[in-house]
Design a protein around this nucleic acid. Sequence first.
DNA 1: TCTCCAATTGAGAGCGTTCACAAGAAAATA
DNA 2: TATTTTCTTGTGAACGCTCTCAATTGGAGA
Lengths: 351, 351
Amino acid sequence: MTHRDKVTIEDVARAVGVSRQTVSRVINKGPNVKEAVRERVEEAIARLGYVPNLSARRMGGGRSFLILAVNDRQRTLENWKAGRGNDWVDQMLYGGMTECEKEGYHLVFELIDTDPQLAPVQLSNSIASLRPDGIILTPPHSDNEELAHMLTQRGIPCARIGRRAGTDYVDVFMDEIGAAEEAVRHLLREGHTKLAFLAGSPEYGTSQKRVEGFRKALEEAGLGADAGLVAKANFHFDTAASLLNDMLRGPDRPTGIIADNDEMAFAALHVADKLGLDVPDELAIVSFEDTPGVRFSVPPLTAIRQPTAEMIASACASLIEISRGKDAVGSYELPFRLIERDTTGAQRTRS
Amino acid sequence: MTHRDKVTIEDVARAVGVSRQTVSRVINKGPNVKEAVRERVEEAIARLGYVPNLSARRMGGGRSFLILAVNDRQRTLENWKAGRGNDWVDQMLYGGMTECEKEGYHLVFELIDTDPQLAPVQLSNSIASLRPDGIILTPPHSDNEELAHMLTQRGIPCARIGRRAGTDYVDVFMDEIGAAEEAVRHLLREGHTKLAFLAGSPEYGTSQKRVEGFRKALEEAGLGADAGLVAKANFHFDTAASLLNDMLRGPDRPTGIIADNDEMAFAALHVADKLGLDVPDELAIVSFEDTPGVRFSVPPLTAIRQPTAEMIASACASLIEISRGKDAVGSYELPFRLIERDTTGAQRTRS
DNA sequence: TCTCCAATTGAGAGCGTTCACAAGAAAATA
DNA sequence: TATTTTCTTGTGAACGCTCTCAATTGGAGA
């Protein structure tokens, strides 16, 4: 702890009586180092408290030991500014940091605009400045082919969250269609015959897939097109609330709502309360996301749990493997889970 | 956008017909560059899409353009693992990232153990590896004198959150004592005569100060020592719930609770519900923190809002100034705010 | 016009690592 | 034992920037 300030690889080499390169081999767990030498070097590293300088490593070897996670700037800032927080970001941090830390990497967060003009430029700049060993694209950036293509062209491993298209990339996703279907079936099973899907934004591929699953499940159940409404509320509380306010008034109103994120589900709760509809007896709600906040709502939300932290962790793990020269490109599907809480499960039968 | 891959300072210099050094001066807004030259260089930078390489900058000049934010590993991981999330982390990210981005810096997050043996070693390692230009210590690390001292000794600017002690450091804090006093007065004003403070951990200086403010306000109101209970619940839901479970049964129970964080306030809500105590009529609750989740609780929590994002932003701003050679060391007090929601404010008078 | 000082520009070294390659030692083969 | 082959180690260059200091330029003042 009381070591000299800046211990370099040279100091270690001198202490052991070997060359820089040998120490470097030990650090990087390279082959061709005699066991006895390795041990002496490791001892000296521990004794001197040597830690390799990341910048120098990057300069010398091209690896930065940095993973860059790219988020939707607009939505993230919007949420923050509204005092809403971003549980999604928190989860990413959890999955990403713990995984990176394990492997001696660091996770850096960046916000990038969705605008197709700005996105590539901003990403380019981040890359030029940070030179990360891998990049994680989250929705909706994961749906931007240009970005992914640019990264491949530059030889930067790229992982896409919520996307299952590629062969050149690491795609980490859950079965969005299947999840939406399960949500629908859950509601149908409880006797609902008219459902509405509060969609996020068509900009998000995940949103599209969920709409697809929503429609598919209704069709498979033999219900006509009018059994399923799709309303686009852009992930926003206010938009959702205002749409629902109209939608839930008519006599032919839907009795089951599936929301594309928790925020819109909260809006449903809010409107139900305002209109005097009992939840879940008169209106059942299933949300997508399952952020920590849902347990404090009234009543707690039934939700499809997205494996957010796990997806980011998996993406990091794959990117790190790739940066080490291994082949980890491919598709990774992670399981979702329907967590039943109190916005579904009415204690009665419908006609 | 279709620029060559790695544009270096040399490329820019060659394009303009000047030396590397001149370009470097322009980048760093250094003096002694003719206006005409500066303009030509800037034009070339834009045209070629040049972005300085952070690692190289760090190697050459010693600045890394990185700010390191250090958090309590145990508590953060605990929260994550429990699926609780860390709204605090999210807020930090918001304040820190937006401020850093503005100045061309990057924010990196690290988790460090509280253990006095491990903390300095882990921090040393992070420093050696990242060489950040500044470090933000959050509670309880901000109370660890050894850490702060080590940083000063190594010449690394250090900002401490929730601490108002130093002259050598950037201290960013709110008036914890005053906030606790305000919470107490708020409850007294509503007629409560027996209060309890659910304290976090004595490891946290902020906790200590709040206890101090709690006692002080009661004393100033002329109430005896038995008017104010202090229970140590370590920020945990379960611990708090179990303590309250006993505390709220007796006939002489407190009618007002002040919780050191939102999680413990939720526990109070939970226990009140279980014991059939109406909130706020039979039990009033004031929380400290005001994370986004509190608006979804039943009922929404009255809380002292900590200016978390603002504190981190301010810390970043100061650290960046210092790393630029300016003197920004000092104490920065940021205002808190009591936000009245529905866990206080009973519509009746007490005897 | 000449000198001198300030403003401007450039050249070379250095930061701490890894890379490519060369050299030496040990082991395997003949 | 002589000759490969394999394993181990070391050497110099390179990465892209900023630092220090030297060189050049342009005016102001003599």
